[in-house]
Design a binder for these strands. Structure first.
Lengths: 291, 291
DNA sequence: GTCCATTATAGCAGATTCGTATAGTCGTCC
DNA sequence: GGACGACTATACGAATCTGCTATAATGGAC
């Protein structure tokens, strides 16, 4: 059974005569005739009665038509889906990401991305960076975003480095400084990430290097939590300038010296090539993370 | 998009290598190769990555596979349905029939008919004979069975004539006779069809011809109702020997003279050729009505 | 009877399909 | 590192299929 036969059959059922069906399909009447003859021969069904040079569909033709039309639609649908995939309107994105970026930046980028992709399905799994790094190897994600360092080096990985900024309430006396150093923060209540975090290590070294007293009053797991504590006046702290930006509205942000480096990476599963969709989204994400 | 391309694609997705897919489809490996290349070219999708002489399906291929498989199934289903139609296992029968035959004989024949036709859909519309005769012209039925006479002669019509039999309780004194005439029924309580029915006319003539008194104690619309009245001892009556047979179990049935003729007909719509299914069922019905 | 609309058949050119032969690529085993 | 095995890609030719034009055949309308 060939598709062209089914198309001719459908056109013929819909338009009554071979001549009209031929016009509709942009082919000649004899073409239709042989197609239908072939279909009848192959199915073994008498689809039309030839009465006085005219065609009359048999009850069998009407029964078969239902299935033929359904089959054609399925094929046409497959064709349409192929076009949607090609143009990037259809696909799915499964993303594993660490919390701070999952809360604001990623949803924002994804909804922007989905705007002209009507058939896009999105899945975001939020885990702490360590877990995200493990998940990458399960190959169940198109994409992952985690903070460095990585325990295992992953082949496809794109690193983004930031110098952390000092954040403090606008009303804070130090907010008038252009740049802040550990000296300025000697004994000042400070909100930081947990002791195990690279940020903690770097801050500890920085304060000790400057001979300043680091007055830690709160430790949090995420920058976003730290931001909120600072906003509430609990102390000052440092954040990355990009991912955490949405959380620092209403706070003063100043450069901090010495450099406290914060690194995140876009990770791609190694076994499989990324989908076009994933590549497109990475472009958008990359632009946002470079900003 | 050609079916063969989709078949090759499916086999390749299912079996991993072109070589194996080719074996499964009974064709050569280069054949698969060109088919896949054609499909990739036509859809514009990169379905497989060629890595070291091996194929690896892209995420796009996995997305497209779902639709491709669905389309193939739909076509294969159409093909199967065609075979079912050809072999008479699939189809529908819309039958209009008058009540007496709708109650027992038709359901019995239809369930027998359906036994080896798993996909048969049956519709029985029960109306009195006059309405059935009108319905035939609406062309909505494959088949109709009505009592004669017809108001309009219908072109396709097959008539069955019966001599009515006298029915009476086994305990009735007349049950010992081999044959019954109006003389025997002089003044005997009698159950008959309505006054408008040809049966009524014929009976009236018969009794008057024999100079016997016709003692009508009940008039019914259907033979089946009359049978039940006779079974209840309300009187004696006459019935046709075939269609009403299921209703006369437990009653004595004797030939009646003079002949009271009862005629029914199988009617076929004229505009359209009957389906193979309908023709097959008519064969069965004809055998039953001839018996 | 002639005209008109329709379907069917024949013959041909071009496209498609699919086989064989063969080359290229990569991993593995010795 | 070289031979082997498993796989894919390309070239080319034969067979088939497709779909065209030309034309015959049929039957209804006037």
């Amino acid at each position: 059974m060939r598709l062209r036969q089914l198309e001719c059959f459908r056109a013929l059922m819909l338009h009554g005569t071979m001549t009209r069906a031929a016009e509709l399909l942009g082919m000649s009447q004899p073409g239709i005739s042989t197609m239908i003859a072939g279909l009848e021969h192959e199915t073994g069904l008498t689809l039309f009665l030839r009465r006085g040079g005219r065609l009359q569909p048999t009850p069998e033709a009407k029964l078969f038509y239902v299935e033929a039309a359904r089959a054609l639609e399925a094929v046409e649908n497959a064709s349409r889906v192929a076009a949607e995939i090609r143009s990037g309107r259809r696909g799915h994105l499964a993303i594993a990401a660490y919390p701070s970026i999952s809360i604001k930046l990623l949803p924002r980028l994804l909804s922007q991305f989905a705007r002209d992709r009507p058939e896009l399905q999105v899945k975001i799994i939020t885990r702490n960076s360590a877990t995200v790094r493990e998940l990458v190897s399960t190959q169940q994600f198109d994409l992952a975003v985690a903070e460095l360092p990585l325990d295992y080096p992953t082949s496809h990985m794109e690193v983004f480095s930031y110098d952390c900024m000092c954040m403090l309430p606008h009303a804070h006396p130090l907010a008038k400084l252009k740049q802040i150093t550990p000296d300025d923060l000697d004994g000042v209540p400070f909100v930081t990430l947990f002791r195990g975090d690279p940020i903690y290590q770097q801050l500890a070294s920085a304060f000790s290097e400057y001979g300043a007293r680091w007055n830690v009053v709160a430790e949090t797991e995420f920058f976003s939590t730290a931001c909120q504590l600072v906003a509430e006046g609990r102390g000052v702290g440092i954040v990355d300038p990009v991912v955490s930006k949405p959380f620092t509205e209403g706070l003063a942000i100043r450069p901090f010296r010495p450099r406290i480096q914060y690194q995140i990476a876009i990770l791609s599963p190694t076994h499989e090539a990324p989908s076009q969709m994933a590549q497109d989204f990475v472009k958008l994400l990359r632009r946002a993370l470079r900003a």
